[in-house]
Design a protein around this nucleic acid. Structure first.
Lengths: 162, 162
DNA sequence: GGCCAATATTTGGACGTTAAAGTAACTACC
DNA sequence: GGTAGTTACTTTAACGTCCAAATATTGGCC
């Protein structure tokens, strides 16, 4: 616990000037902070495996895939990131031998990223670590986690996403 | 609405393998996504003023301050970011004449960042723009925004923050 | 068949964040 | 008073994200 919460303090400041706007501002600030803290927790758990969360997500996605490979573009869609971010993530994974890149035989514009056996082994270990860390949210019940997801889906909708 | 939600799809994948872990994973993923979308919306609104959200927050904080200035370290605490991030943000604002840096007369280790008249003018304009954009959350009621903040405070607590 | 538009990926640049190391200045204590 | 330790800030380096521009390949259409 902290004796001073900057978010609450900011809300106080806004309320004094724009009482009818403070709640939206604080909601946004809260999202930013939760993301920051959660990312930090998750990356702590992944550090022993030399993976960032972005790298982990890419690897995890490939491991889920039926044929262990996916076009770069599809990965960007699933991970909801810019194509350049996928290139960046896959390049590092490839240099560690966790992923391979091959041109698609059907369309040579397409690059297929495929997880290697080493990549599969690592991602399973890393997944165990994340499970043990409860994804940075120890103490949160399953049910509450599901409710949070619903609330955030509403927020995504309000922001024009999904 | 989108015809395919990557977060829901990911939840499906996790549920098939780790039914009792999927909810936490999805909650985390949702936070990351909401942050990404919200940041994008907010920065769209700030773009006409040449401000990023980080720069805006620094400027806004200084404008709230009694004497229009704050030590760099205090800014880092309030904004909940690393000292290096404050240095980075203030350097850019200073180069645009929106902020000044002065050594504290009391303690010459301390750098006081102070908002300039130009900075104050700009931050008020930018604040209006954010208000008009409802901080990227049009359609969300005040009440709902406040509820979201409470939920996120619970999440921060679960993650070990605040 | 041949040219133009659309699609897929990469490259380079700008920004934000953190961790770790370095510099300067203040404080405590013998 | 002089040395040791702490504190404040900056610098450097690594990573992630996005945008805009460049490259390559495919597909449509006259």
């Amino acid at each position: 616990m902290v004796d001073f919460d900057p978010i609450a303090e900011a809300h106080r400041q806004w309320s004094a000037r724009w009482p009818d706007r403070a709640d939206h501002m604080t909601a946004v600030t809260s999202v930013m902070r939760v993301q920051q803290v959660l990312l930090s927790r998750v990356e702590d758990a992944l550090k022993p495996y030399g993976l960032t969360f972005a790298a982990y997500e890419a690897l995890r996605l490939l491991a889920f895939t039926r044929h262990d490979s996916l076009p770069m573009g599809k990965m960007g869609e699933r991970l909801m990131v810019h194509p350049a971010s996928v290139t960046n993530a896959i390049r590092k994974l490839e240099s560690r031998g966790l992923v391979e890149r091959n041109l698609s035989p059907d369309d040579r514009r397409v690059v297929l990223a495929a997880i290697t056996p080493a990549g599969r082994t690592l991602v399973e270990e890393a997944t165990d670590a994340l499970h043990q860390a409860d994804f940075g949210l120890p103490g949160l019940t399953r049910q509450r986690a599901a409710e949070v997801t619903l609330t955030l889906r509403e927020l995504r909708a309000a922001a024009g996403d999904a």
